[in-house]
C-alpha cells in the first residue's frame, strides 16, 4: 500500500485515491497547431524515477493533488494541492 499524505485530510491509503496522470502537461493555446495538440494529448515522458503526477482523493475530500513519487520505488517526496492558490491556504491554516 502506498500512503499519500493528503494536505487536507492527512495520511491515507492510496486505495482512497484515483491516479490521474502526468502533472506537467501544458496544454497549448486553442489555435496551436495539430502537432502541438497531438503532443500534449497523446505523448508522455513516461519517467522511470521521480515524477510529478496528479491524484484525486476520490473517496475522501475529492480534491486533486500533485504528488512527487518515484515510479520505481513508489517513494513519495511531496504532496501539494493541484491549484497553486490553495497551497497558501493550506499553509496558513497549519
Amino acid at each position: 500500500m502506498i500512503r499519500i499524505n493528503c494536505p487536507y485530510c492527512g495520511e491515507r491509503d492510496h486505495s482512497e485515491f484515483s491516479y490521474g496522470g502526468d502533472a506537467t502537461i501544458n496544454y497549448p493555446s486553442l489555435d496551436a497547431s495539430e502537432k502541438e495538440w497531438t503532443e500534449a494529448i497523446f505523448f508522455r515522458k513516461n519517467i522511470k524515477g521521480f515524477q510529478f503526477e496528479t491524484w484525486h482523493h476520490s473517496n475522501g475530500c475529492r480534491m486533486w493533488l500533485v504528488v512527487e513519487r518515484s515510479t520505481v520505488t513508489h517513494e513519495i517526496k511531496s504532496v501539494k494541492p493541484c491549484h497553486p492558490n490553495l497551497q497558501k491556504v493550506v499553509e496558513n491554516n497549519k
Binding site: M1, I2, D13, H14, S18, T71, V72, T73
Partner: peptide, 13 residues
C-alpha cells in the same frame, strides 16, 4: 494496479 509504475511487484488492494 491503476497507477503508473516500473516496479515488477504488485500492490495489495
Amino acid at each position: 494496479d491503476w497507477y503508473k509504475s516500473y516496479a515488477q511487484r504488485g500492490n495489495l488492494p
